[in-house]
């Protein structure tokens, strides 16, 4: 049991105090609803459970709502697709390194999968290449996956998330729960093409880690370094109101492009700007996915 997962667990524990404990699990469990699951036992209803999963007869007998629990006939696999290029060593909008947010999001999803008895695997990489880690259902394994993300530094190669997605599209045949850990990527035709392919084959969820703003009120202070080219960015030039305005317009157009691409394929998405938002946004992501279907 490693330290990264401990941090994720403590975060989940705090979250559990604010929302009902089973809430997240219920949301997660509903993802594969109807996928050939066999009835296992009954458990108490918690908000978030599908109403159609309620065993009405058992409920009538006991006087409290009960949910039918299923045993997966075959183990589901959660595949995390993450960018481990040096883009993730850059800062998120909240000022933390993006990889910290990614570790937290991946840890939460991994623990949910483990709790559900699923296995977790990871496809990660950068512009130089993509690596696939096998699917296993142990906490030790999840910890190891998180370490791959945590190891990201500025000495890594530049990022290219699309090539990781293309790797998944090319190599994974069976239906997976696919969670993409992405940042402010540009919705270009190459990305749109691979997303369409993945969506046809898998359940796809999209976690958007929001990059640091380069202009406007939440812009980075001091000197900025473009991690792609390792060159200074004269962010202070964006203090010019006209430039800040055109930046805001361009950012809105970019966000609209990505949102359109994902929504046309019915992919649920959530944006995370700080580690504090991770739990809530993952919950929203799962709920959106359930509702969107």
């Amino acid at each position: 049991m490693g330290s990264l997962l401990t941090a994720v667990k403590s975060k989940m524990h705090i979250f559990a105090h604010r929302k009902a404990r089973g809430l997240l699990e219920g949301e997660y469990a509903s993802i594969f609803r109807g996928n050939g699951l066999d009835f296992d036992d009954l458990r108490d209803y918690v908000p978030g459970d599908e109403v159609r999963d309620i065993d009405w007869k058992a409920t009538a007998r006991t006087g409290k709502p009960l949910i039918k629990r299923y045993v997966a006939t075959r183990r589901q696999q959660l595949l995390l697709v993450a960018d481990t290029g040096r883009n993730m060593a850059a800062l998120a909008e909240g000022g933390e390194p993006k990889k910290d947010l990614a570790v937290m999001a991946m840890g939460v999803l991994g623990l949910l999968a483990l709790g559900h008895g699923d296995s977790v695997s990871l496809v990660h990489g950068d512009v130089a290449g993509t690596a696939a880690l096998p699917a296993k259902g142990t906490e030790h394994h999840v910890e190891m996956l998180l370490r791959h993300m945590d190891a990201v530094g500025l000495d890594h190669e530049p990022s290219d998330l699309t090539s990781q997605l293309e790797y998944v599209a090319a190599h994974y045949r069976q239906r997976l729960l696919l969670v993409v850990i992405a940042d402010d990527v540009l919705a270009d035709p190459r990305l749109a093409k691979v997303v369409r392919r993945l969506q046809a084959q898998h359940e796809v969820l999209w976690v958007h880690i929001v990059d640091a703003a380069l202009a406007g009120p939440r812009a980075v202070q001091g000197t900025a370094l473009d991690v792609a080219g390792m060159k200074p960015v004269l962010a202070f030039l964006a203090q010019d109101p006209a430039l800040a305005h055109s930046y805001a317009e361009a950012m809105a157009a970019r966000a609209r492009g990505l949102a359109e691409m994902l929504s046309t394929h019915g992919i649920a998405t959530a944006s995370i700007a700080t580690t504090g938002e991770v739990m809530g946004q993952i919950f929203l992501l799962l709920e959106r996915h359930r509702r969107g279907r």
Binding site: M88, A90, L91, D184, A212, V220
Partner: peptide
């Protein structure tokens, strides 16, 4: 310096 990704946004 502050490392930022997708600087092409600006």
């Amino acid at each position: 310096p502050t490392p930022v990704a997708h600087a092409e946004r600006l």
